[in-house]
Amino acid sequence: MTAYAMVGTALLLGAFVLLAGLYGLLYSLAMVLERPRLRPAAFACYALHFGVMAVLVIATPLGGWWKILIVGSCLAYFAIPPITWRYLVSLHREEEGSHHGRKPRKHVARPVVSIRSRA
């Protein structure tokens, strides 16, 4: 690896995780604030994240196994915000249900509604 490739690859790796974080942040804000406009912004961040992944795979001298790991991470980052969000909502919903002596409800597709109703 050349000195320039080392710096370039490191910065791309940093951008890779940072964009995943921005995707998660905007996704969560879109849900919590009920701002549908933020969701395209979140997915735009993910698209950039995906693009950085592609550059890392195609244009950097990282070893093959590391590139596979980065592709796998990219897919995992896509799933983490929605899965975490649904898990949190279902946890809170079950807790609400048990407080009111009701049978816990199953997960629903629109978790933000529960936050609204709590407010």
């Binding site: 942040l25 996704y27 949190l88």
Partner: peptide, 10 residues
């Protein structure tokens, strides 16, 4: 981070 935003939003 998602958890923190959830709590902040709630």
């Amino acid at each position: 981070v998602i958890h923190a935003i959830y709590d902040a939003g709630v």
